[in-house]
């Protein structure tokens, strides 16, 4: 399991670089490195479907983020209540860490999951659905309602982007400015 820890530490280092570098384009590229390491981590943890999906989604994510950072802007300004903001942020993160470490004690140890629901799927999946890829059997047969809701969310996202980016709003605004 050494490779898993190496990949996790690499991801943490990439994340720190991504949030501390001042150039926005370098920061976006560092996020791409974190995403690719996440894809390899999925492969190490025996989830090949997720590895493929994460890889291709990461490429599209990188294209969209680079599209947003074309114009340079100063990323960090130290005006105002710098000390107060830092103290509030660190206190919140400390409370969050305490609660989550207390909660992690109740989880089963790493490598020994409680497979109460998944045992049924793994045992009867091939007979009941006929699909040899059990992840596809679960998302499209046992839990197809999830996929239906996911399709609804993507449709809403596309509608939202189209609404924010539409042309009609700007034309109407220009017409009112001319009228004024």
């Amino acid at each position: 399991m050494v490779d898993l820890y190496v990949l996790l530490i690499f991801m943490i280092a990439g994340a720190i670089i991504a949030i501390e570098v001042k150039d926005l384009l370098s920061s976006v590229v560092a996020v791409g490195a974190v995403g690719l390491a996440l894809s390899i981590t999925f492969l190490v943890l025996k989830a090949p479907d997720l590895a493929i999906t994460q890889l291709v989604v990461e490429i599209l994510c990188l294209i969209i983020l680079i599209r947003a950072t074309i114009r340079k802007d100063l990323p960090f300004s130290t005006s105002g209540r710098w000390l107060l903001n830092s103290i509030i942020t660190l206190a919140f993160i400390a409370v969050f860490l305490y609660v989550s470490i207390e909660a992690l004690k109740d989880l089963p140890p790493f490598g020994y999951p409680i497979m109460r629901v998944a045992e049924v799927y793994l045992k009867e999946g091939l007979l009941k659905t006929g699909a040899t890829n059990l992840v596809a059997a679960i998302i499209l047969d046992y839990r197809a309602y999830d996929t239906l809701g996911e399709a609804t969310v993507i449709f809403t996202g596309v509608l939202g982007v189209m609404t924010v980016m539409r042309r009609v709003g700007r034309k109407r605004q220009e017409e009112t400015e001319k009228g004024d």
């Binding site: 999906t53 998944a118 799927y121 059990l134 992840v135 839990r143 999830d146 996911e150």
Partner: peptide, 15 residues
């Protein structure tokens, strides 16, 4: 390995 969280995360990535 447990296949149920993999199916949940697969939708979460695209969302």
């Amino acid at each position: 390995v447990d296949a149920l969280p993999q199916a949940l995360v697969l939708t979460s990535i695209v969302i």
